[in-house]
Simulated assay, not measured.
Amino acid sequence: MKDRQPCQSEAEARLSSGSAIAVPAITISLKKQPLDCQGSIDAKSPQPTLTRHIAQKNLRPDLRVFSMIQTDHLTLRKPCSSDIDDLFEFLGDAEAMAYTHRDATWRDCRKRVLVHEWFRRKDGAAPWVVVNRADGRVIGWGGLYQDPFERGWGYEVGYYFHPDAWGRGFASELVARALVEADERLKLAEVWAMAHPSNPASKRVLEKAGFVEERYLPDRPRFLLRRPRPLVKA
């Protein structure tokens, strides 16, 4: 995995070109639109100062997104087309994705990332590329999103990491920041998540973040977990 330079996201490039993306039962026409605002935000400062702003006049303030967020150990940012090789290294690995969806081909991986990124404009959230701040390597993909291929589950938290990054607390750090987005920016009443019964470590990450098991979905098979928005003390 290589260090990456700042770049325009592939979804933004497709938006500028006026092409289209097909999603099951949906065809999304991508007309020329203003690009998303660009800026950075430190995890300790939920109200950032934009370093560069491109108009988002058609979006509610809660749906305006920032291209980069930094936590203690991670940089969370929107994907670029040059990230696909690094992402497919683990998103396409059968062992690494044993308990979740695996992209069979590089093209499948690119399509999934691109479709999620298009929905960032509509939903105000989509998976981030996760970069280890210590060495600049792409180590994961995930965060807060509504699954564009299964609309109906609501906003959920999901995460996928390279095996080299397992067991180092990065998933917990990512989930914590995703929930800040859910609570403080989007002000969601609840957030959902799923965990495979053979992957108890992932379930523990979610439970430590405040998720509670709602029920078991035998057809998937997955545990469905829910995390309500914390009550605000007067």
Rank of each mutant, 00 (worst) to 15 (best):
V23T: 14
V23E: 14
S67N: 11
L50F: 14
D108T: 05
E117T: 11
H53W: 10
C80L: 03
H53F: 11
D123V: 01
Q56P: 06
V115Y: 06
Q33A: 13
A43M: 08
R120N: 14
G124H: 03
P46T: 08
F119L: 06
A55I: 05
E89C: 08
L30T: 09
A55D: 15
D108M: 03
D83S: 01
Q33P: 03
N58Q: 15
M68D: 09
M68K: 09
V65M: 02
K57I: 08
Q33M: 12
G124W: 01
D108G: 02
F88T: 03
T100P: 00
D103R: 07
Y99S: 05
E89D: 10
P79H: 00
P46S: 09
R102A: 04
I41R: 15
P34E: 01
K122T: 10
D123Y: 10
Y99K: 04
E117Q: 15
L74S: 06
A126P: 00
S81M: 08
Q38M: 14
A94M: 03
A43W: 12
R77I: 05
T105L: 07
D62Y: 11
T49N: 08
V115C: 06
G92T: 08
R121C: 10
A94Q: 09
T75I: 14
M68W: 03
R102Y: 01
L87H: 07
I28V: 15
Q47W: 07
T71Y: 07
D86A: 15
F88H: 15
K57Q: 13
R60Q: 12
R120C: 08
L63G: 00
T71F: 04
R110W: 02
Y99I: 02
G92C: 07
K122C: 07
W118G: 00
K111H: 15
A96V: 06
L30I: 03
T105A: 06
P46V: 08
K122D: 02
M97R: 14
R107N: 11
V65Y: 02
A96T: 11
Q47M: 04
T75G: 12
I28H: 04
R121V: 12
K44Q: 13
R64M: 05
S67W: 01
T49Q: 09
C37R: 05
D62T: 13
H101V: 07
A96S: 14
D36C: 01
K111E: 15
D103Q: 11
V65A: 02
L91Y: 07
S81K: 13
A55Q: 12
T75H: 05
I54H: 07
I54G: 00
T75C: 12
Q70I: 00
A104E: 12
D42L: 13
E95I: 02
I28A: 12
S67H: 07
L74Q: 04
V113H: 04
S29Q: 10
A104S: 09
G39D: 00
P127G: 05
R107F: 10
W106E: 12
K111V: 07
S82F: 03
N58T: 14
Q70D: 06
W118A: 15
E89M: 06
E117D: 15
K44Y: 11
V113R: 01
A125H: 03
T105E: 14
D36W: 09
R121D: 13
T27E: 08
R64N: 01
D36V: 02
I41F: 03
